[in-house]
């Protein structure tokens, strides 16, 4: 395939208005990044073993704290999750989920509140499928970290997330927050 070179005049500008590419260029860039991420993830796992999960989790957590800094602080978990849904956007599109026999989304277990989240659109899952890597690996920890970091930032509380089930179209996760864990 022939590579098209872009030639033109370039002047210094504060905020570039043109990207100099089209949808195909975005797609190519995305796929290269997906392959790069997948390769990094498997290499990290090969070198660090289970420590890879902790590294990626920490990176995600930092991103989560950073993203949620501008969000309104609240002690209401459902309100916090609604707000986080807007921040995470369509690339990590999630909804609250409950089994049909349960009356509310949240359940109280001692000083812990538990809620199930269904992640439908996830760039991590797409990256794993692009690179042929299994789900629940180190790269999934990026999203756990991200969610936990954002919850901690918004609610000023300790949180953790566990995977219940992974699928090709959606993943079910359990978010647990501990009230005494400030």
């Amino acid at each position: 395939m022939e590579i098209e070179e872009i030639r033109g005049t370039f002047k210094p500008e504060l905020i570039p208005k043109e990207t100099g590419g089209d949808l195909d260029d975005y797609e190519d860039a995305l796929h290269v990044l997906m392959k790069f991420m997948g390769s990094m993830s498997s290499a990290l796992e090969q070198v660090s073993g289970r420590g890879a999960n902790a590294i990626v989790y920490q990176a995600g957590k930092r991103m989560g704290h950073e993203s949620a800094k501008m969000m309104e602080k609240t002690e209401n978990l459902e309100k916090a999750l609604d707000e986080m849904g807007d921040v995470l956007g369509h690339e990590f599109y999630f909804e609250k989920w409950k089994p049909s026999g349960q009356s509310s989304y949240t359940t109280q277990e001692g000083d812990q509140v538990v809620i199930k989240l269904l992640f439908m659109d996830c760039v991590v899952r797409q990256t794993l499928r692009r690179t042929g890597l299994p789900q629940k690996g180190p790269l999934c920890y990026l999203l756990y970290g991200y969610m936990v970091g954002a919850v901690e930032e918004v609610m000023d509380i300790k949180g953790k997330i566990d995977i219940d089930h992974v699928g090709p179209n959606a993943c079910l996760k359990t978010l647990t927050i501990t009230w005494s864990g400030k």
């Binding site: 269904l118 439908m120 659109d121 996830c122 090709p168 179209n169 959606a170």
Partner: peptide
């Protein structure tokens, strides 16, 4: 919850889910 794990594991592709959120 339309995770579609059943689609992935079914050797005969015998099921179809309608009116679900299809992930990008």
């Amino acid at each position: 919850m339309a995770c579609l794990s059943c689609h992935e594991i079914c050797p005969a592709q015998a099921m179809e889910h309608q009116d679900i959120h299809v992930a990008k």
